[in-house]
Every structure is written in C-alpha cells, then in structure tokens.
C-alpha cells in the first residue's frame, strides 16, 4: 500500500470515528450499533498504521481475494451508508421507546385515578 493510500485510509477512519462518536453522544445512534463502527474503525486504523500488521493483512486479503481500488471506494461508501441506515433505525427506535414509556405512564396514572375515585365513592357510601 502506498503512503498516500495509508494517509487517506487513516483520515477516512478518523472522520468516521469522530462522526460516529458524536452521533452516539447526541443519542442519534444507538451505542450497540455505534460500538461496532468505533471498535471496527479503530482496529482498521491500527492495522493500517502498523507496518507488520498492514503487511500481514495485505498478504491475507490478496491471497484470499484480489481487491481493486474501486472496490475499496465502494466499501467506504457502503460503510458510511450503513451508519446512515443505523441512524434512521436509532431515531425510529428512540421515538418508539419514548411513546411506549409515555403510554405506560399515562395508563398507570389513569388507572390509579380510577382506583382512587372508586375508593372515594366507596368511602362516601359508608
């Protein structure tokens, strides 16, 4: 891998890392999804910047499947797309959770109101 390739790869990894961490912090990406990207990207950056690991990874990937530069670009685009999809799932999931919590709280309040009114009525009869 060329020096420019390593630099671009590391820069892309850092951008992805900062983006994902910020999304988790803002509650726009569920930590369970985000953790995959955070630790995956960290591992990729480490492999990229340590020559021994990079050589081993290059040898392994070339032996298993030859990777064209174009397919690497596709992988990067797909990764960012995946983060976007996970953001949408997280947003929806957060809305469902808030709705579920609110519904549960209102039902309980309504129920306790009904019970206290019934208790008042039975108290006034006696």
């Amino acid at each position: 891998m060329t020096a420019a390739g390593i630099l671009v790869g590391t820069a892309l990894g850092v951008v992805l890392l900062i983006w994902v961490v910020n999304l988790i912090r803002q509650d726009r990406l569920y930590a369970g999804y985000g953790v995959i990207f955070v630790f995956g990207t960290l591992a990729a950056i480490i492999v990229l910047i340590i020559p021994v690991l990079r050589d081993a990874a290059t040898a392994a990937t070339i032996a298993l499947l030859p990777v064209a530069s174009l397919s690497l670009v596709a992988i990067v685009i797909l990764t960012f797309l995946m983060v976007y999809v996970f953001i949408q799932i997280t947003v929806l999931s957060n809305r469902v959770m808030r709705l579920t919590q609110e519904l549960a709280l209102r039902n309980a309040e309504e129920q306790s109101g009904v019970e206290s009114r019934a208790a008042e009525r039975s108290g006034s009869r006696t």
Binding site: T100, Q101, L103
Partner: peptide, 18 residues
C-alpha cells in the same frame, strides 16, 4: 402496587428511566 406496563421490552435501563 402501581403497575406501569411497557407494551414491548425496552430493556433494564429504559425501565429504570420510566
């Protein structure tokens, strides 16, 4: 006991938050 019932499982953290 007063019962607050989530319609689906939200996990321990959300139950405490409720």
């Amino acid at each position: 006991a007063t019962v607050v019932g989530h319609l689906c499982n939200l996990g321990y953290g959300r139950a405490i938050q409720t």
